[in-house]
Amino acid sequence: MSDFNHTLAFSVPFETARQAQIAQRALDPDPILKPSELSVEYSTEDTFLKIDFKGRSDRVIRVAANNVLENLKTVVECMDEFEGQKDVCI
C-alpha cells in the first residue's frame, strides 16, 4: 500500500514485558474497519508496546489513534486494579 504516506508511531511503556504483551493481545484482534485507508500494527519491544499507524490521511490516523488510546486506557485501568489480585478478595 504505497499510498499510505501518513504515519504515526506510539511507544507505550509498561512495567513488565508481560504487561506489554497482554496489552498487545487485548488490542490486536479487532479488525481495522477500512483496511484500504489505514493499517495499524502492534508489536512489543521489551516492556514497550509499539503501535504503528499508516494511512491515507492524517484524519484517518487521528481517528484510529484516538480509539486505540481509549481502549488502552481500559487495559491499563484493568491492570492497575487486578494485576496480582487473583488470589485476593477484592
Partner: peptide
C-alpha cells in the same frame, strides 16, 4: 461491544 471485550481480554490474560 468492542469497548467491553477489551476489558474481558485483559482480565482473561492477566488471570
Amino acid at each position: 461491544l468492542q469497548s467491553v471485550v477489551v476489558a474481558a481480554r485483559t482480565l482473561s490474560q492477566m488471570w
